[in-house]
Every structure is written in structure tokens, then in C-alpha cells.
């Protein structure tokens, strides 16, 4: 067997594994969606997941949003004042937060804070054979454990992104108006003139909902399909964070191209 043949073999095997993995993950998502009655029939389960995915992520989202807003205020002012248009600071801060930074950074934080926790929890349940035990007791682990986590993550993500953007705008306002002294009225009216409700605010909400689906799906599938050993769980957590971040950034590009630029 010569070298070219070996290379082709390698590429073929890689593609087969890739397609298999994507297919299994899609079947998994389908199964979760089909067995999603339980979190809505028993809201207590959903509430618990909203608590772990949302409430516990809120603090890191607020702090990061604040800092991103402060930096945007400083950098935006520095760039804009070179063109004598520092009054546009409000619209720069609001548009960049609502369209990109809010949904994307909130999703990245969500993947590393909540997504990794989901993967770890499910992976450990698998490693300690709790999922098998549930099946023995005729409890469907997908309906009882996975589906509430999925819907918790999907519902929480848009709210986290909105909080991030709102805190970021306040951070930009603090730097621009309080520290630097841009006129307060101009700051807000420029912002309101530039930001449209249907396009920017709703667009950001749609983006973050899509990111919520993507990140939660990856986190749950990695936990569900990991090797049930200590090493397997740790690898699955790493993959959740890495794949989650990559998927968010790639999905962001596609969504931006469709929603704002209209390709």
C-alpha cells in the first residue's frame, strides 16, 4: 500500500467518523425533542435547571457585561473623537453589544459555566451507572434528566444575553457620560436613533436563542456519549467548551450574514 492510498484511507475514515458523530448527535436531539413533555408537565424539574443554568451564570454575565461595556466606552470614545464624532458613542456601544457582543460573549460564558456543568453532571451519572439504574426503574433518563436541562438552557440564554447587553450599555454610559462627559441627552438620543427594535434588539434575542440550542445540545450530547470513566468525563467537558465556543462563533457568522447583511 503506497502513501497516497494510506492518505485517502485516512481521509475516508475521518469523514465516516464525522458523519457518524453528527448523525448520532442529531438523533439524540430528535429524541430529546420528542420526549420533552415532562419538563412542561412537571415545571419543578425545569425550574431547577433554570436555577443551575441561569441564576448561577447571572453573576459572571453581569460582571463581564459591565467590563465589556466599560472597555467599549473607552475604546469607542478614543476612536470616535479622532473624527470629531464622539456624540455617536451611544450608538456604537449599543449596536455592538446588541448585535454581536451580548449574544456571543454571553453564549461563550454560558458554554464554559453552565454547559461544562451539564456535561460533567450527565457524564458522572453515566459513569456511576445512575442512568442505567433509572432505566431499570422504568424511568426514561432522556425525559427525566436530559430534556429539562435542554429546555432550561434554551429558555435561559436569551435572558442572559439581554442582561449582558443591558449592563454593557450602562457600562458604556458610565464611561461616556459620567467619566468623560459626553452629553447625556445626545448619548441616549443618538442611541435611540440608531438602534431599531425589530432589527437589533429582536435580532439579538433570536441569535441568543439559537446559541442556547447549539450550546446546550453540544453539552448534553457530550455528557450522554462520553466514555464512562474519569478520563472520559474530563475529555467530554473539554470538548463541550471547545466545540461550544467554535459552534457559537460559526453560527454567529452565518446568522449575521442572513439577518443583518441580507446575503
Amino acid at each position: 500500500m503506497n502513501r497516497g492510498e494510506a492518505l485517502l484511507l485516512e481521509v475516508g475514515a475521518f469523514s465516516r467518523r464525522l458523519v457518524t458523530r453528527v448523525g448520532r448527535a442529531s438523533l439524540f436531539l430528535g429524541a430529546v425533542l420528542r420526549r420533552s413533555q415532562m419538563p412542561f408537565a412537571r415545571p419543578r424539574l425545569l425550574l431547577r435547571e433554570i436555577y443551575t443554568a441561569g441564576v448561577l451564570t447571572l453573576s459572571i454575565v453581569v460582571v463581564s457585561g459591565g467590563f465589556v461595556g466599560l472597555v467599549l466606552g473607552l475604546q469607542g470614545y478614543d476612536t470616535l473623537q479622532r473624527f470629531g464624532s464622539e456624540t455617536a458613542l451611544g450608538s456604537v456601544v449599543a449596536l455592538s453589544l446588541l448585535r454581536e457582543l451580548g449574544p456571543v460573549i454571553a453564549a461563550l460564558l454560558f458554554a464554559s459555566r453552565a454547559g461544562s456543568a451539564m456535561t460533567a453532571e450527565i457524564g458522572l451519572m453515566k459513569a456511576t451507572e445512575q442512568l442505567d439504574a433509572m432505566e431499570v426503574m422504568a424511568v426514561d433518563p432522556i425525559a427525566r434528566v436530559i430534556a429539562p436541562k435542554f429546555w432550561g438552557g434554551v429558555l435561559v440564554m436569551p435572558l442572559l444575553a439581554a442582561v449582558f447587553s443591558a449592563v454593557g450599555v450602562l457600562g458604556g454610559w458610565f464611561i461616556g457620560v459620567v467619566v468623560i462627559g459626553v452629553d447625556e441627552g445626545t448619548f441616549w438620543s443618538q442611541m435611540q436613533g440608531a438602534v431599531s427594535w425589530e432589527e437589533d434588539v429582536a435580532g439579538g434575542v433570536i441569535k441568543s436563542a439559537v446559541f442556547g440550542v447549539v450550546v446546550t445540545w453540544i453539552a448534553l450530547y457530550q455528557g450522554w456519549s462520553c466514555r464512562p470513566t474519569a478520563e472520559g468525563v474530563s475529555q467530554a467537558i473539554t470538548r463541550t467548551v471547545v466545540l461550544g465556543a467554535l459552534a457559537v462563533l460559526a453560527a454567529d457568522f452565518v446568522l449575521t450574514a442572513f439577518m443583518f447583511i441580507g446575503v
Binding site: V169, V195, V205
Partner: peptide, 12 residues
Amino acid sequence: ALFFLAFQVSGA
């Protein structure tokens, strides 16, 4: 936060 974005930021 959503209401703040809708009314104060976008001026809907």
C-alpha cells in the same frame, strides 16, 4: 433587561 433594551436603548 429586555424592556430596558426595548425602550431606553432602541427608543421603540
